[in-house]
Design a protein around this nucleic acid. Structure first.
Lengths: 352, 352
DNA sequence: TTGACATGGTAAATCGATTAACCATAGGGT
DNA sequence: ACCCTATGGTTAATCGATTTACCATGTCAA
């Protein structure tokens, strides 16, 4: 590999001049001709600064860690995409790690930070009861940004407008004429779970509708959780005419459970889910969703980590706004009787 | 951060002694007492070697790049998990990049390699016609392992036993009594597409059944591709009684299209898909799949990259063997008439 | 003519770890 | 007494880039 002294030799200047020219050091006084020779030499030799040398000298690795709970969720994938784009455009690399690295006894994060291998950490905690002591992870001066969580004292956070997203979903259903809404939420112990449920309750209340606690579940965001939630809803003697699902993954399970009950979507029951990824359009029926700015969230986290100003901040990504993507899982409520899970003999063709 | 000279000072030896003790240099003669003091000092100070310093000296970054076409596929996520585990256990970091980095003009890979920031690359090419000149990406001495592709001359490859996986699926359906099998495959221009289709044809042929070319499609692996494939199948005047889908993502689309046609799974038509990830169990009905050793594939790629011996190899990961996961999307074929897409009036209850 | 200042750079230290080459001392054999 | 070898380490160079401090020359004004 060609190094800075090779460039210097070809341009007939010192290595220090090359470094200062290429880095745009404004305190360097250099003739236009020399500057030109240096630039040309670097170009001709295809010079790329050695990362280890630079990192050693500057104490910055231009690398950040992205720690996520579940790589198999497409929702995470969106976020990672956004982070990756932003990182690439800033010349940063992203190292990937699953959250279990934090708890598997390998002290992975401390190791990476100790090695000065990463300049910062983007951390997305698993849904559910927090079993990681996040605050204790603040290590030295390495900044940590926590995604989609709550205020973690000394750690910066970036979150989505969860309540706004849920509100968009609720308003869509209200607009279709629904007044009997159910909610399939995340764990109440998680920050997003709390914000989304609160958003649902607020939107219902503002519409002047009564809140039916038995139609509000909090099993979690996985497909299996969604199925369990729908089964729990169906165990009561009446069903809502529409359901807001706080996560698309859970919506798949909800949809499967509805089918298993012999009900039709959206004829008997409408569903709308938070987050829009490819499989929302590959189910039957395709699921109406609210698209959230996930990749912008990832980008914002990278930006926060990179910005010089290292004060602790708590930001909410609101742009672009939650966007309703109407597909075929939502429709008008049936005007006559409210369906129950006993009421499952109907023609396959009464779907609107 | 504590550095090696701090440890040396505390232990009362030279930095070189510390380095050699901690790295287990067998040519170093050192008394047991001194060794003990060094180890204790390192432990007490929580010494972690600085990565840049070490990388600069050794010219090895202990980092590999993982380049994937599509982060949002859970199939990729399995693979990434396996790679990440293997990497972590070897003390390597994985930097994540999407395949578009290779073609977006930023020369990302060349940059990373030029900076000596990565020691090797694991490359999974997008399905479909290869629009990346892989061979040209061999840069200097940086090893590249290509995943799930074909023999790429100077590049090592690691692949799955695609034909074996498809054969497992076919045998399951044959065992249920099906003789009219369809195949929803990937692009014929991609290596996995070819291997999976070839596996399907071979398994059918060996069973002594005729091959119906009109029941073999090759739209691709995405959900939308699966939907298109199923619609194409349904455009003929007879349908197979069972379909092997070469990728679970496409199977979601197939399932949606089958529902849209008013057909029932598995009563009218059975489906079995390659790859087993969470949403196979969150659809209606849950999809019978063949689980492939994806995380082992990822681990094998990391191992290949790390092993000293740098000859070019072509390996197939066969362990554990393709595993059939029976769910509710497969059943016996109907004994009477073969269903068509016109035949869609039936009770919701005639499901097996 | 001398001092001041601008011009156009350069020299050398530094970041932290590794490693090839070397060295001081003690003990043992002859 | 002298050489040899083993013991237990150490010294110093090196990896490549950055950055602070400095220097040689030329020009201009007083």
């Amino acid at each position: 590999m060609v190094k800075i002294s090779d460039v210097a030799a070809l341009a007939g200047v010192s290595a220090s001049a090359v470094s200062r020219v290429l880095s745009g050091d404004s305190t360097l006084r250099v003739s236009a001709a020399t500057r030109e020779r240096v630039v040309a030499a670097a170009r001709d030799l295809a010079y790329v600064p050695n990362h280890a040398g630079r990192a050693l000298r500057t104490s910055r690795s231009r690398t950040i860690a992205l720690v996520v709970p579940d790589v198999t969720s497409a929702v995470f994938a969106e976020l990672a995409s956004g982070a990756e784009d932003e990182a690439a455009s800033r010349g940063l690399a992203i190292v990937l790690a699953r959250a279990e690295r934090l708890t598997d006894g390998s002290d992975w994060l401390r190791q990476m930070v100790g090695e000065a291998r990463i300049d910062g950490v983007i951390l997305q905690l698993p849904d559910g009861p927090p079993h990681i002591d996040v605050e204790s992870m603040a290590i030295g001066r390495t900044p940590i940004v926590v995604i989609n969580s709550e205020d973690h004292g000394p750690l910066s956070t970036v979150v989505l407008d969860d309540a706004g997203g849920i509100r968009t979903a609720v308003e869509h259903l209200l607009g279709l004429g629904h007044t009997q809404l159910g909610f399939v939420g995340g764990h109440r112990s998680s920050a997003t779970g709390q914000r989304r449920e609160a958003g649902f309750r607020a939107a219902i209340r503002e519409a002047g509708l009564p809140i039916q606690d038995r139609w509000i579940t909090s099993f979690g965001y996985s497909g299996a959780d969604g199925r369990a939630a729908m089964e729990a809803l169906a165990s009561h003697d009446s069903l809502p005419t529409a359901i807001v699902v706080a996560n698309l993954n859970a919506a798949l399970g909800v949809l499967a459970a509805i089918h298993a009950l012999g009900l039709r979507v959206p004829t008997d029951i409408s569903i709308v889910a938070l987050h829009d990824v490819w499989y929302a359009d590959a189910t039957w029926p395709p699921i109406t969703t609210v698209r959230m700015p996930l990749s912008e969230l990832g980008a914002a986290a990278v930006a926060r980590l990179t910005d010089e100003d290292s004060t602790v901040t708590h930001a909410t990504v609101r742009s672009p706004e939650p966007l309703l993507v109407v597909r075929q899982s939502t429709g008008n409520p049936r005007l006559n009787s409210r369906p129950t899970h006993h009421d499952n003999e109907r023609s396959p063709h009464d779907q609107h």
